[in-house]
Design a binder for these strands. Structure first.
Lengths: 338, 338
DNA sequence: CTGAAAGCGCTTACAG
DNA sequence: CTGAAAGCGCTTACAG
């Protein structure tokens, strides 16, 4: 097939002009070109089927138009939805997205960042899981801007973009109280770090003495944990889970043990992924503003505008809290029965 | 910060040798270097914190080490799981993944391919939705290999990697028959194209006269459609859905209308994403071998090995078909009561 | 085993 | 408004 790609020099030759001029018309600048010359160049480019070589351009101009996105696991629905929003935001800025899954392994995350830097990315968006190291530091040292989204390692220097969960968590607690629950437990992750730690703190300020549960973030772990607690008679009556994955696991465990949600367990989750609307019962959640987070992060990274601040997470009332499909609970977002 | 990045020339200068030799030790070839010289170079590189510039390397060597992945929508769990597997397979071959969501729009898909080609990708993996154009043709014309995964436009020239659903669909039909169902309906997409068309055909050869339903692929569309049918008394008693998203929507619609699955509707779905294990009831599915598909596609693209063929989809029996948690149905995969 | 040098395909000062 | 030429940071024939 393609013996040799058509180059800018080929276009120049055909248009009877210099490569400089061809470059100016292809890039629409930085210097003006006579209308007639421009026509000739455009015609020559079209006839030859010219496609600019971005890597040559990148080498010369020191900007690749590519941003690296490092992720824990793109098959986790929360990260998947976030990644989708980030890719879209980057696309709107004309950037291409290099993606890599670090899979909860700090070493792989470092490796990915190293390879992205070698690929000369213009920036780095890092959606890491708990407990990573400050990989953004290496990027900054190389003069490449970086931004954390959702999670940030302790003592990181790069900015973080995350929603404020304070109001939403307090609303979730208030809503469960309105349903008559006094003791509202919280299911956190294995450690008190990252956004989940923050969510837990927000819960704790609202609920002085209730129980703190822990388990891994997977659906399977949450299901097993729920089954065990139910068997032991140790399942609380009202629970807030840090993530949708955990809530979905709890739902599965409750079903296996024949425990009714919301009759015997009222549940609110704190992610609000699309999945949460299709569970049985549908999950009442605090919805993270993923798109706003993505746009904010990209704006911050690319420094084009002073980004507006990310909105708080919002309470979305469905049925796992005890509100019935027949009762119109959506009007109860102020938590007052009337 | 980084005034200027450390280059290979800097390393050569410090090691007191030529850039050629530095290149040879960094790349471990293609020509031999004396052990002592190699040590000096390695030491110099380490002291200077040298990081090879992949774009310069790419310009000269005409290979970027980057593969483009074009996707319909990475937030759809089926595509998300597949994308994750593809990224992993590429990573195992030392390739970086440039990702783009075409969002079911043929024009956007073309645009993405064009930009990936301009970025000089070494190959293209295309996971398109129904009805796309043959974007791989443009890649081949540019001398860039391409492979379709899951779906392929009609009259495409590039290879497709997809699982054979024949056996699995026949097993699904047989399993529902074993449950006593004679008329087994099928929920397809809006059109009879792509993998869903194939799945429908497989169903049709097994079921002569049963009903064919259609709706969009979204959960919401399937839910609405189910609600309407239930209200109209037009919901079949046994149904195979082309995708998990549709099955999850059907489950939601049935719940809203108080129709019990599997008591009044036996359901089997044909994707088998991780989500399908956590619905209520858990979905009996035909599971697509996503990892094998991804590895096969990447092997084919990179041409390193003659790839083994992709295994067939396999029936995974859970509860939406009518098998009970208490009954051990997993031993019934031969569909004979004994 | 090593070095000097050309060249990948662009962009961009520098002259005119 | 346009052209000739340098140079981005590598790899790789070509000599030795």
């Amino acid at each position: 097939m393609a013996d040799r790609a058509v180059t800018l020099a080929d276009v120049a030759r055909r248009a009877g002009t210099s490569t400089a001029v061809v470059s100016y018309v292809i890039n629409d600048g930085p210097r003006p070109v006579a209308a007639e010359t421009r026509e000739r160049v455009l015609a020559a480019a079209a006839e030859l089927g010219y496609r600019p070589n971005r890597v040559a351009r990148a080498l010369r101009s020191r900007t690749t138009g590519v941003v690296g996105l490092v992720l824990a696991d793109a098959s986790n629905p929360y990260f998947a939805a976030l990644a989708r929003c980030i890719e879209q935001a980057l696309d709107e800025h004309g950037k291409l997205t290099l993606i890599g899954n670090a899979g909860y392994a700090a070493e792989r995350q470092r490796n990915l960042v190293e390879r992205f830097l070698a690929a000369q990315v213009d920036g780095l968006v890092i959606v890491s899981a708990d407990g990573g190291t400050d990989v953004a530091a290496g990027a900054e040292a190389a003069g490449v801007p970086a931004v954390y989204v959702h999670n940030q390692p302790t003592r990181a220097h790069a900015p973080v973009v995350a929603a404020d969960n304070r109001t939403a968590v307090h609303e979730a607690v208030a809503h469960l109280r309105w349903h008559g629950h006094e003791r509202i437990a919280f299911l956190a992750g294995p450690h008190d770090i990252g956004p989940v730690g923050l969510r837990r703190q927000n819960w704790h300020t609202a609920v002085a003495d209730a129980e703190l549960l822990r388990c891994d973030y997977s659906r399977a772990a949450a299901a097993t944990s729920a089954e065990r607690r139910i068997t032991d008679g140790a399942m609380p009556r009202a629970l807030i889970t840090a993530t949708d994955e955990q809530a979905i696991g709890i739902l599965a465990g409750a079903r296996t043990r024949g425990l009714s949600v919301p009759d015997h367990l009222a549940l609110i989750s704190l992610d609000g992924t699309p999945d949460s609307a299709y569970t049985a019962p549908a999950l009442t959640v605090t919805r993270q503003p993923l798109q706003a987070m993505a746009e904010h992060a990209v704006d911050q990274l690319l420094g084009t505008t002073t980004p507006p601040s990310v909105p708080d997470a919002a309470l979305v009332i469905r049925h796992s809290c005890g509100c019935r499909p027949t009762t119109d609970c959506t009007t109860n977002s102020r938590h007052s029965p009337e």
